[in-house]
Design a protein around this nucleic acid. Sequence first.
DNA 1: TTGAAAGCGCTAACAC
DNA 2: GTGTTAGCGCTTTCAA
Lengths: 349, 349
Amino acid sequence: MGKLTIGDIAAQAGVSKATVSRVLNDRAEGVGAETRARVRAILDVTGFQPSAMARGLKTGESRSVGLIVPDVTNPFHPLLVSGAEQALSDAGYSLFLCNTGSDAAKQGDYIRVLIDKRVDGVILDSVGFEAEAQVRLLEREGIPVVLLDCVIGKRAQRHGVFLDNGHGVEEAMAFLFLRPDRKLVFISGPPDVSQSVDRRESVEAFAREWGLDGGRLTTLDGDFTLERGCQVTTEWIRSCSEGRAPPFNAVFAANDMMALGALKALRQVGMSVPGEVEVMGYDDIPFARLLDPPLSTVAQPAREMGAASAELLLRLIAGEKPRRKTVVMKPQLVLRGTTLDPEILNAKS
Amino acid sequence: MGKLTIGDIAAQAGVSKATVSRVLNDRAEGVGAETRARVRAILDVTGFQPSAMARGLKTGESRSVGLIVPDVTNPFHPLLVSGAEQALSDAGYSLFLCNTGSDAAKQGDYIRVLIDKRVDGVILDSVGFEAEAQVRLLEREGIPVVLLDCVIGKRAQRHGVFLDNGHGVEEAMAFLFLRPDRKLVFISGPPDVSQSVDRRESVEAFAREWGLDGGRLTTLDGDFTLERGCQVTTEWIRSCSEGRAPPFNAVFAANDMMALGALKALRQVGMSVPGEVEVMGYDDIPFARLLDPPLSTVAQPAREMGAASAELLLRLIAGEKPRRKTVVMKPQLVLRGTTLDPEILNAKS
DNA sequence: TTGAAAGCGCTAACAC
DNA sequence: GTGTTAGCGCTTTCAA
């Protein structure tokens, strides 16, 4: 059954393999209507499926692409994956999922496998800059590569889709400082990842521009984990209550996990959210909306980013030379339950 | 560069393609040590990667498998995926990720594509029974299939890995009824999915066995969503306060999302958890432990289930005929912050 | 409009 | 121990 070949079909239809191939590929010309119908009938009744491997061997394209992901288990990545998958499958491409567990060796193995499989292109999601050598392997083979939410080599040197972190920070800060008596604590991410650095620098730039002094903005060093977010918040609360630090009425965390940590710290000391302290996160992980109260945050359009990366890759595969190598997506401020409505605030005062 | 073939290597080494092939595949015999070294050197220096398509065409195996998933974006599935991916990549197999969005048509398309690609096997995660025709397509082609956390056709007719839902329910119930004054509300899932039915029937069986009457156990009809979980809990609380229903001191939800809903309802009326009411979920979605307090639940060993499905598939691909068609995994009770420690409880009383 | 034939890059008998 | 040869299942000139 599975061993049916184009030759069998040809024999049954009393035509040549070439003709069957033409019908299979919907070539407009080269096949008479009557012949076409006869062949098609046999195709249907046998449920014949041509071998993608044989075709690929001949045509030099596999109609499949690789997607390298550090960890599908992390809340953010499945969104990117599903966005890419959607766009890819719509275009008739299959997806090799390569989950590396952030292990450089496994990533290298996967890249080699993808070359073996002769994939038509590769999307690299959040890989570290140390992957440059591996990327070059792909480039040497002439395989198009799209970077997703990460930078390798000089920025804009390679094709990629990124988030405009500065924009997100500005939106959040502008919102938070709508309140004239705002006293904000910003919890930064780790210093060695580009998103984190972008966000911190944007906060600092905003502070400079608005002339925010120490009384109105304090930055704490976090590392993107819930635990650290909780810890630094707890310590800060203690400093405040001991008079070693000024009071505050909002926390802005560089990602949602740290915002969760801050929330936990606030709850532990019985401070009400958003009444006494407002909390803003960054990312909009799926869990953010499930919290009680739901977390206000800067939402990354993750699914769209995934889709955009696939679309960019598809264009490269098609041989286009996009004018802009890079797609920059805008994050969006999502106000939910951990922040106050400034309108109401103004009305009250 | 990418156009290097085994013939080029053979020419450079001054040997035949067959010899290169033998070196490539680490055939112990048939190549002299000196020749082998020479060929290997050229292989290394050129970074030659043989074409998996050409090899596959010849050998009839693609060393890749398909994984059909309803929605990678749902908290549970990435765990299954990563478990399967791990086992598969360890065995040298690549993974085609097929995200169907629970769309039967897309699922059918994917199955056809997988047949085109001549995958060596397919794992079907949580597909509905209406997929039977599609599964038969695969079987007709002689492609091994493993069912993951779903039943198609008669139970145990096909290979698969499942969760022992009854066991999980028993553990949870036995724990909950350690407390002699327990009055439990069970929120059931929808009546049309097998896991849900299993869990409900197990609760009922337990109630019969222990002779639990209406005062000690009430079942509410949920549908696995957070919203419904919140709604039925709210209604029940109202009934209680109006004296139309007996009081309760615990909620056991058939999945974590409904447990989240119950938690929300309880918080809205100011009932303390776990002080006044204990809450138990089922599944252990990754967020369960992030809640505050973290959710006590019946944990599915999702990653292990994914791995087990891959291992079973690998054995089928290798041509083995496993004696047991089916792998049944045991869930585990995880006690966290939404339940009381019964020891302490006993000590107190 | 149709068919014959030559490969795509590899493996596996079978020779030598 | 090594080479020759014949395909795997398809597409694609080129001829008819």
